[in-house]
């Protein structure tokens, strides 16, 4: 039974995290706005130099983007529009940026979510094997694979997987589109992000396996029951959850390369394209989105950690 005062402190803790999250998101979006304005100069210049707008049209676009106003006013307008979900319009296609992002979002979300699930499956398997069977060959192999996962560039695993699948499929005319289009890239992305998860679980589990209470349990004969594993794993769950929040951000940049190698549509390629074309509203919209997603995943991770480990709640 949870007492009333306990529940009260819990609510307070949650509220505090949420407020902090909003603060971070605001700071991150602000940083993105100013960093982008200083890094890319006049957003309309590239349009003008490509002949896609006459000087008069360019001036018109400047006005419609509000670029003639002082920077602080532009910033306030950007924030106000952002709150309403309005990210402006693309310089090249004059379409709503929110709509362009929404179109590409499902593809990236499918890739990122499948990638994350596979990362968790690989990460847990490798981490637990490495710690539990630490003195056996299989444990060492698991540790080595986990180390490799952090070290091989996504570009390289992607290319290798295409080469291998290409070789296997030669002669067999199959058009299993989705296997190539979703599962394979997700596998590549998941493998790359499983390394850090495996490492955290490996070290956390190794430590708790050495703790007196586990040693005692083992001595009592519960040698390698799943119950024991469950108990020993629990302390590593909180760091794993914070890590997943970080991974969510990694997935965003990981998709840039994965989508390129596998010719998949999505936000990663939209981003590269917008940066190279100088389509400033799209870049800014995506960077703001990345910052907000990052903050949300951190807040959610914090809250989950609070739920899992009541000690942290009391520490508030």
């Amino acid at each position: 039974m949870v007492s009333k005062s306990h529940r009260h402190t819990a609510t307070l803790a949650v509220a505090r995290r949420l407020l902090e999250g909003i603060g971070t998101a605001w700071a991150a979006v602000t940083f993105a706005f100013f960093a982008l304005r200083f890094a890319s100069g006049d957003p309309v210049a590239s349009l003008l130099s490509q002949g896609l707008a006459s000087p008069e049209q360019a001036e018109e676009i400047r006005i419609s983007l509000g670029l003639n106003a002082p920077l602080w006013l532009q910033y306030l307008r950007f924030l106000a529009n952002l709150l309403q979900g309005d990210l402006g319009t693309s310089l090249y296609t004059h379409r709503s940026v929110s709509q362009i992002i929404l179109e590409q979002f499902p593809s990236t979300a499918a890739l990122a979510v499948s990638g994350l699930i596979l990362a968790l499956i690989f990460g847990f398997t490798l981490g637990i094997t490495a710690a539990w069977l630490r003195k056996r060959t299989s444990g060492m192999i698991a540790a080595a694979i986990a180390a490799l996962a952090t070290s091989i560039p996504v570009a390289f695993t992607g290319i290798l997987s295409l080469l291998i699948v290409g070789r296997l499929q030669q002669g067999h005319v199959t058009s299993n589109d989705l296997f190539i289009r979703l599962f394979l890239p997700a596998l590549v992305l998941g493998f790359a992000s499983s390394g850090p998860i495996a490492r955290v679980i490996h070290s956390g589990l190794s430590e708790s396996l050495r703790s007196p209470f586990i040693l005692a349990a083992r001595a009592r004969g519960i040698h390698r029951g799943s119950r024991l594993l469950g108990h020993a794993l629990r302390p590593s769950l909180a760091p794993v959850i914070s890590l997943i929040a970080l991974e969510a951000a990694f997935l965003f940049s990981g998709t840039v390369v994965t989508e390129t190698v596998f010719s998949r549509p999505g936000l990663g390629r939209l981003l590269v394209k917008s940066i190279l074309d100088g389509d400033y509203p799209i870049t800014l919209g995506l960077v703001a989105l990345a910052a907000i997603l990052y903050t949300i995943s951190h807040v959610v991770a914090d809250l989950l950690t609070l739920m899992i480990d009541p000690r942290l709640r009391r520490a508030e």
Binding site: Y92, S114, I117, S175, L178, L182, A186, K273, D277
Partner: peptide, 29 residues
């Protein structure tokens, strides 16, 4: 996981008379 895999295994609804033509550039419009 299951739903991801399931969606990956969906049979493609290609009729006999469908041609797949590859384009090499994704235009912005």
């Amino acid at each position: 996981t299951v739903s991801t895999l399931a969606s990956a295994c969906q049979p493609s609804s290609d009729a006999e008379s469908t041609l797949h033509y590859g384009l090499t550039l994704a235009p912005s419009g």
